[in-house]
Design a protein around this nucleic acid. Structure first.
Lengths: 147, 147
DNA sequence: TATTATTTTATAATCCTTATAATTAGTTTA
DNA sequence: TAAACTAATTATAAGGATTATAAAATAATA
């Protein structure tokens, strides 16, 4: 999903963590690295299973803890769709998601942020708007042809 | 949230259920009625608690079952935000939601549907788009002043 | 009214996520 | 570098929302 993740991106993220007073442990580093290089939007369990080989003793709680830390710092976004578990997305640039209702595939979709919607919402509701989320649902090319 | 819910709206919904071969039981009727007249976007447990007086023996499973039936027919929309439980919204007209990050209040917000976003997504991703969801987050007037 | 299919109920089970407490391991300071 | 301090990890249990199950009740139909 994220086109080019150079080593620099991981380094940058590590620096940002350090500056926030977060320790860089091997497990934490691995979770972060996995997220940055992920071609998918993994669940906590996906990450846990993927790192099982490298860290046979790692606890699921560690994955959740680290994801929370990353989220609080703003490195990672938590995506809550209808299905059971949250998905996690490394925050590169602002983008939206297109989700296949048949197979669950999630594809990034870049679109200029909907600023006017936000400002109209402020006017109409009196809220002080901070951000918004949007997802688009449909059927992906693979699922269209496969029947 | 929904400005005027005449008796007709409930009747219409009941008809739609009947036409889909769904039986109208007292519990089902009550859940539906509650949703239509709700000023909030209740969770399954909200509904369960609200109907406790009328139906002391009703099971939570019944609430969930009926909400699923309503959702499958399209009468009701399930909203999944970051927090633990889903919220349910009776589908009147298309609208969006503005959510207070401080107190959790949900306010309806009408905006012309983002058709161009959908069609661009189709072009770029090759998906056959069916619909989208959008929520706007911020601080509500009450929470702004109360600080 | 008898039959059939659906719905409700009560309960248990499941799944995801968080809490807890003990242990381990980074980090800092002397 | 070693000691001290603090944070992170682990293993486990607990929590909460939702779903599954099977028996009992109820609605629809003939």
């Amino acid at each position: 999903m994220h086109e080019h993740h150079t080593h620099d991106e991981l380094q940058e993220a590590v620096e940002r963590l350090k500056n926030s007073g977060v320790r860089i442990t091997p497990q934490r580093h691995a979770v972060l690295e996995y997220l940055i290089h992920a071609e998918t939007h993994p669940t906590a369990d996906d990450i846990y299973k993927a790192l099982e080989g490298k860290f046979p003793n790692m606890s699921v709680a560690t994955v959740y803890n680290n994801l929370r830390v990353f989220r609080e710092i703003g490195l990672v976004k938590e995506l809550t769709y209808g299905d059971s578990s949250s998905r996690f997305d490394y925050n590169t640039s602002k983008h939206y998601h297109v989700i296949c209702e048949s197979c669950g595939k999630i594809v990034d979709f870049h679109y200029p942020s909907l600023d006017e919607v936000e400002s109209l919402a402020e006017k109409v509701t009196g809220f002080e708007v901070s951000h918004h989320r949007m997802e688009i649902y449909g059927t992906c090319p693979d699922c269209k042809t496969t029947h």
